[in-house]
Amino acid sequence: MFHFGGASCNNCDIEILDCLTPRYDVERFGMLLVGSIRHADVLLVNGSINKKDKPRLLEIYEQAPKPVLVVAIGACGCTGGIFAEGDTFAGPVDKIIPVDAYIPGCPPKPEAILAGVVKLIGKN
C-alpha cells in the first residue's frame, strides 16, 4: 500500500491514516504502508489532481511494479468533486491512470476505505 496525496484538503489523508490505527487496523488483512513505491501493490490516490500533480502521478504509476491496483479515494479522486470545473484541474484519477476501485465520500469513512481495499484482495 502506497499513499499518493494529490492536491487534497488533507481530510482524506487523515481518514487513510485512521485505517492504520488500532481501531481499524488494516494489517489484519496483511496490508502495511510501505516507504517505497517499488514495494507497493496498491496505490491510494486522493485529492484533486491538478496540472502540477498529473506528471508526478504518472511517474509514480510507471515506477510501480505491475500488477498494481489503484484506489481513488474521496469525491475529488473519483470525480473531481467541487474542483471538477476548476481551471487547474487535470481530470479525475481515472482519466490519467486505470483505477480499480472508487471510494466516494467527502471524506470517506475509514470503514468505507477498508471495505474498498478488502474487496480488491480477491482481484489479484
Binding site: Q63, P65, K66, P67, N124
Partner: peptide, 24 residues
C-alpha cells in the same frame, strides 16, 4: 493494541513477490 496479520502472511508476501510482481 491492534489485531495483526494472519498466520501465513509472510508466505503470501514472499510468493506474491516471487511469482506475481514485475521486476524493475
Amino acid at each position: 493494541f491492534r489485531k495483526g496479520p494472519p498466520l501465513l502472511q509472510p508466505f503470501y508476501d514472499f510468493f506474491k513477490l516471487l511469482l506475481v510482481k514485475e521486476t524493475i
